[in-house]
Design a protein around this nucleic acid. Structure first.
Lengths: 178, 178
DNA sequence: CCTTTATGCTTTAAGCCTAAAGAAAGAGGA
DNA sequence: TCCTCTTTCTTTAGGCTTAAAGCATAAAGG
């Protein structure tokens, strides 16, 4: 559609990418120095995460009839063969306690994870992968890895390394302020 | 908390940060070259987005009794005074069409946005900020900007600039593959 | 033993999100 | 006119997410 109904197509920019565009040379910008570079960084970070997540979510659904959060649980459990308590799981995944309850219930119904009472604490359930869950995770992880490699194949290797470092630093800073 | 309840505290790493850790010098790594640097980059990107989003969501809720998605809608509309159709809005926000319906309905009930029929196309509703919505957005945007500046105040300015560039490049690449 | 306090987990209410199906309007051609 | 195809939007079913309330267990102190 060339020249589509004037004023109907938005610039394909997410949210507030250029909040300070109007106003000319700002003489009283809030929080001077930092300017809005941090805001632009944040908006772009979020856009990247959203776009990529959308692609991965669709792949998980289409090819394996599962979801990203369920994969995340399996991945967390794969890293700790002894199993994790619900609380530990929720901390590892950065989601709320109640949320984990529902997701684990689904995986349990599918026979992918098992839950036993902590012998040292009757309140605590320890969740771990079943053999079927381990097999399922291995399959999913391979596909997941390949999807991401494909998604990012046009990003130069040195740029990837740079981002690994910078984002690691950024994550450390963000975690401090929690 | 030094030495906390042995075996109960997971390493504070999100999801699959080091999938290839076990196995020594891999002789048959899938997708050689790229290795798992892309995977680590992706996991870190996602972690940063989640941590930051969580903080912002809480701030929006506590201080203004609103939500991030609603702010996103206001922000998109602020950038286009003539208003946007529901479809254009959903494209700008990277969310589904049906989702926008619900969020706009909320904002409409609060009197922050108005919706009129497109005179050129009776199917299309054009949504725009009301004066009250504009005032609300200005307030929220100022706070939002300040929160982000505070959240990222320990990231060196040159690192911010570097990330702005790299993430912009990354976003462009991700958008191609949609 | 009993009370108080803290912890682990589940439940609930409310909201965000998607895909898919459906309703309504536009656009084009026979 | 009528038929078909497309586009725009809403609705629906299902899943993720949170905060807050509630239940059960644990831990500490009288």
């Amino acid at each position: 559609m060339p020249t589509p109904a004037p004023g109907n197509e938005p610039p394909a920019v997410t949210a507030t990418d250029n909040l300070t565009a109007a106003g000319g040379p700002a003489t009283r910008a809030p929080l001077p120095g930092a300017g809005s570079a941090t805001l632009r960084m944040w908006v772009r970070l979020l856009a990247c995460a959203k776009i990529g997540e959308k692609q991965l979510r669709r792949k998980f659904d289409e090819q394996f009839d599962t979801t990203l959060p369920r994969f995340d649980v399996l991945a967390a459990l794969d890293r700790v063969p002894e199993g994790l308590s619900m609380s530990a799981l929720s901390r590892a995944l950065l989601v709320s306690n109640g949320n984990v309850t529902a997701i684990v219930r689904q995986l349990q119904a599918q026979g992918l994870v098992a839950s036993r009472i902590d012998p040292h604490d009757a309140r605590s359930a320890i969740v771990s992968l079943t053999p079927a869950g381990q097999r399922q995770f291995d399959t999913l992880a391979t596909a997941h890895h390949a999807w991401i490699a494909a998604m990012l194949r046009d990003v130069p290797a040195e740029r990837v390394d740079q981002l690994v470092r910078s984002l690691g630093e950024l994550r450390a800073i963000l975690e401090e302020r929690t």
